[in-house]
Amino acid sequence: MHQFLEAAIIGVGLGAQYALLALGFTLIFGILGVVNFAHGGFYMLGGYVAYTCVAGLGLAYPLAVVVAMLATAALGWLFELLLIEPLIDDHLATLMLSLGLYLIISTVVLAIFGPISMEFAFPVTGSFHAGSVYLPRENLIVLAVCLVAIACLWLVLFRTDLGRALRALADDRAVGMAQGLRPRLLFPLAFALATGLAGLTGALVTPILSLAPGVGEPVLATSFLTVILGGLGSLGGAALAAFIVGLVEAYTSVYFGGSIGALVLFVMVLLLLVFRPTGLLGRDVRGA
């Protein structure tokens, strides 16, 4: 029984982290129609910015997390404005641009910090234990921040004019523009919002796992898998799928081992693509 509970705790924790990443990934696709292959790079960059703030500048960790989120958001905003925006309707070009950005981020990180893992620890350690069930304090804090960030994102998207404008552009860009919405102003903001979320996740998660060049690659794979499961462009679908992925990964790994856990996720996505190609909550056609 304790294994069942433990898997649930781990699964929810993983799900919240995946949700933050997948929401950013799907936000960019849903609003801009761009598949952002640099998403894992922004996660990695968030970790390195936070590490530099803590180890190099002596900032408190919470402040470092905020700086990491803002720095990755700023980079995302610039990248969209200067490089993506002029080619926004050329899907292949934007895909290649984002892939190129990931390679640049990885190489710069490798050149500055070297290839080995950084000594970057979460400031709060230890676990709560109840019998055989344990809950690491750091995971609890990360889960709480992730859930707050998801709630904030929901508020921004569904309860503010900015969110309404972004969703309108996602639904139908031509009609949105006819109503006076300005993609050149709003698209970079959407991109910044998404990359800021990736940076926030990186700053939160890398101290409890590890920080090294290359940590962005599995993140990109998981984000991609999650948004396909949820339905590309669907925010609700991404959040739902993230928790499903987290729980499936946790339960299959706990009960069937690490190799089977990874396999089950891919089989699940494969089956879904066969029987419901639009994903759990995806739409047939993107308006934008």
């Binding site: 294994q3 433990e6 898997a7 781990i10 924790g13 993983l14 796992l209 590890s210 940590v215 690659e217 599995p218 993140v219 794979a221 990964e249 946790a250 339960y251 790994s253 706990v254 009960y255 081992g257 690490g258 190799s259 856990g261 990874a262």
Partner: peptide, 13 residues
């Protein structure tokens, strides 16, 4: 699987 970043489920097992 190589590329695993979070080992918590495996450790529980």
């Amino acid at each position: 699987q190589r590329g695993t970043t979070n080992f918590a489920p495996i450790i529980t097992r």
